[in-house]
Design a protein around this nucleic acid. Structure first.
Length: 115
DNA sequence: ACAATGACTGAAT
DNA sequence: AATTCAGCCATTG
């Protein structure tokens, strides 16, 4: 699959935001999408994460979960278990593929980054 | 070009 | 409070 130049920029923006996520913090697709000015394109953010594998730079996609704190995209990683393991390594508590105290570790680029 | 899919979200039941 | 439905937007068949 090929990515148009136009969308590549969108992907790049997503990657930058994701890379800006502080360690021990997580965010949601919608938050990122909103930060990019496309609050309705949360799905595209997730799609961008899928493309993160093609990115030359390491994208901490494991810090990006849905607004429920659920690791919906863990299966898209090289090793699904790796996502949870990595999150736990950063001090998160995962239960049933869901981040406990998600609200405490949530990092909103719009607020924290104060765009 | 049309229809279907998806790492989502918000509203309705 | 939990489950279901519909809307969104880009990619793919």
């Amino acid at each position: 699959m090929k990515i148009s130049e136009k969308n590549k920029d969108f992907f790049q923006s997503v990657f930058e935001v994701v890379k800006l996520i502080p360690e021990g913090r997580v965010t949601s697709y919608g938050a990122i999408a909103k930060c990019l000015g496309a609050p309705r394109s949360s799905r595209m953010v997730g799609w961008a994460m899928n493309a993160s594998h093609s990115a030359k730079e390491p994208i901490p996609a494991h810090r990006v979960v849905n607004r429920n704190g659920l690791l919906t995209g863990k299966m898209h990683f090289s090793d699904p278990n790796e996502m949870q393991t990595r999150l736990e390594a950063e001090g998160h508590e995962i239960k049933n593929d869901q981040i406990q105290s998600f609200r405490e570790v949530f990092w909103d680029p719009n607020t924290e980054l104060e765009l």
